[in-house]
Simulated assay, not measured.
Amino acid sequence: MSLTDEIKPMHLDVLREAGNIGAGNAATALSQLLNKKIDLNVPSVRIVDFQEMQKMAGGEEKVVAAAFLRVTGEAPGSMFLILQKEEAEELAFSLTGKEVNIIDDSFDELAASALRELGNILAGAYLSALSDFTSISMQPSVPSLAVDMAGAIISAGLLEISQAGDYAIVIDTVMEEADKEKAANANGQFFLLPDPEAFYKIFQSLGVEWND
């Protein structure tokens, strides 16, 4: 029996609930930052291997914007916030009021800083909620931002880690401006990659019993 066979829908439901609580806290922070009401929710949480992770990010050659950060504390690991090109540009506009193209010179330090701050707010809120659910201390580092093909970003991020597990926890995130009649959703994906021992620790705290 594989490791993921031990993880049941109820365990993922707890992670999704933690994600929605984190999203609620992040929405409050973003609403204050933008001076407009922002809604965030987490429709699903999944466990995937690294090959599937690249596919979900849009494929190895798909250009994306990604915030990358390390998770420190009792369950160390790494996180990616992956935004498709159009969604990164829309969010940069919402945050800065300036239209940008992430693959040319219009994508300046102001826009990059805004997306890093978005990643910082979302990661901090999610990890805080997950810490409360699991009673495991987890804190995010200051994120870095990269614009490149999804495969290159993920590979570079994994190379930066001295060790990595075989699986990622995928937290889908949907962001929208609540007061718009026809609000365009911005969909991002968080990939939480706990270091091997941390992966076991998180799920053991949720009641998963591993069988040898």
Rank of each mutant, 00 (worst) to 15 (best):
M1A: 12
S2D: 15
S2M: 14
T4C: 10
E6A: 13
P9R: 00
P9D: 06
M10T: 14
V14S: 04
V14K: 07
L15R: 02
E17Y: 04
A18L: 08
G19D: 12
I21K: 10
G22I: 03
G22V: 05
A23G: 12
G24Y: 04
G24I: 07
G24N: 08
A26K: 05
A29P: 05
L30K: 04
S31H: 04
Q32H: 05
Q32S: 07
N35H: 13
L40Q: 08
L40P: 10
P43G: 05
R46A: 14
Q51H: 11
M53L: 15
V64T: 07
A65I: 02
A66D: 00
V71G: 05
T72A: 13
A75F: 07
P76F: 00
S78D: 09
S78R: 03
S78C: 09
L81P: 12
Q84H: 15
E86Y: 10
E86D: 13
E89V: 04
E89R: 02
E90A: 14
S94T: 01
L95R: 05
I102M: 14
I103A: 08
I103S: 06
D104F: 11
D105C: 00
D105T: 14
S106K: 02
S106E: 00
E109N: 13
S113Q: 11
L115S: 07
R116Y: 00
G119D: 12
G119V: 06
N120K: 02
L122A: 12
Y126L: 14
S128L: 02
S131T: 12
S131W: 01
T134M: 04
S135N: 13
S137I: 03
S137W: 03
M138A: 06
Q139N: 15
S141V: 11
V142E: 09
V142C: 03
S144M: 12
S144G: 15
S144N: 09
A146M: 08
M149Q: 06
A150H: 07
G151P: 11
A152L: 10
S155D: 14
S155F: 11
L158M: 11
L159S: 11
Q163V: 15
G165P: 08
G165I: 04
D166V: 05
A168L: 10
A168W: 03
D172P: 06
D172W: 00
D172E: 13
T173F: 07
T173V: 13
V174H: 01
M175A: 04
E177H: 10
E177I: 09
A178N: 07
D179S: 13
K180H: 10
A184S: 04
A184M: 09
A184I: 12
N185P: 10
N187T: 15
F190S: 01
L193Q: 00
L193W: 04
P196M: 12
F199G: 06
F199Q: 06
I202Q: 10
I202F: 03
L206T: 05
L206Q: 01
V208H: 03
V208N: 02
V208T: 08
E209R: 10
E209H: 13
N211Y: 04
D212M: 07
